[in-house]
Design a protein around this nucleic acid. Structure first.
Lengths: 135, 135
DNA sequence: GCTTTGCACTTGCAATTTGAAAGTGAAATT
DNA sequence: AATTTCACTTTCAAATTGCAAGTGCAAAGC
């Protein structure tokens, strides 16, 4: 459903081949905030991803080892998506994107507040957040 | 040639609206390596961007203040593209992408070598590189 | 047990975007 | 003056996106 043949051996290019589109990192973001999401959770996000696009992105993110599916404790009808370690390791990238956007765009006050914490000690924040996501 | 209406106020989403595609950061990468590029330089890159796509990306990157055009000292027929400060400030993101890819993919030895330097002292590397690009 | 609802997708199709190739026009080179 | 270089544009088929409706299984309600 998405072949993404490698365009080159460049690390930037390789990375973009996997998650370099308008939606993949939105899904990753949701998982970083919520730690685990159902298909329906993703659909509820502000950006309103189309359901077929969501399905194709979840498929390719799983194919590429960024996310994994697991069973929902309450119901067999539900599926839980989580980040793998490889997905969790995207966090430093996400943090830097946040900081860049914070510098150049008007963000909601709530987001700005959260980023204050990040800026205080980036390393520490990332370490803690990665740990939180890990278990 | 690319309207990219904002999908939400989320910093990740805002950022992806601007450079969240398979090519924009490739162009930024080229500019970070070379500091300035002509249209032809971009076309020569390993990934072989199509010329119409290149034109549309250069346009939108300029529209969004990431790059700027300037005159080539040798010829009026040539155009030089450079990163603006806003573009230069994408460097931390690029560094983190490199480090992530380094962790999960086989990169050419030359790239790995460069990244060793980065890992020694990330902050220092970024500060220096940003300064270099700035003048 | 039977129907209805919830959930995770899939399908169909129009509209947009991409990508390959050829073309254009101004500037530099021969 | 003629050719080449350079920065794009144009054309058009193929791929991808996005919307809307549909499917099939699981769980909840009656």
């Amino acid at each position: 459903m998405k072949k993404s043949k490698k365009r080159s051996d460049c690390p930037i290019s390789c990375s973009l081949d996997i998650w370099g589109d308008k939606w993949s990192l939105i899904i990753v973001r949701d998982l970083m905030f919520a730690k685990q999401c159902t298909y329906g959770d993703f659909l509820k996000s502000e950006e309103k991803i189309a359901t077929n696009i969501l399905a194709s992105r979840l498929y390719s993110l799983e194919e590429n080892g960024i996310i994994s599916k697991s069973e929902h404790p309450d119901s067999k009808a539900k599926v839980l998506y989580r980040l793998t370690q490889k997905g969790i390791d995207l966090l430093p990238i996400m943090v830097e994107i946040n900081l860049w956007a914070d510098k150049y765009y008007d963000l909601p006050a709530s987001r700005k507040e959260e980023l204050k914490e990040v800026k205080k000690d980036k390393e520490k924040y990332i370490k803690l957040a990665v740990k939180e996501l890990g278990n």
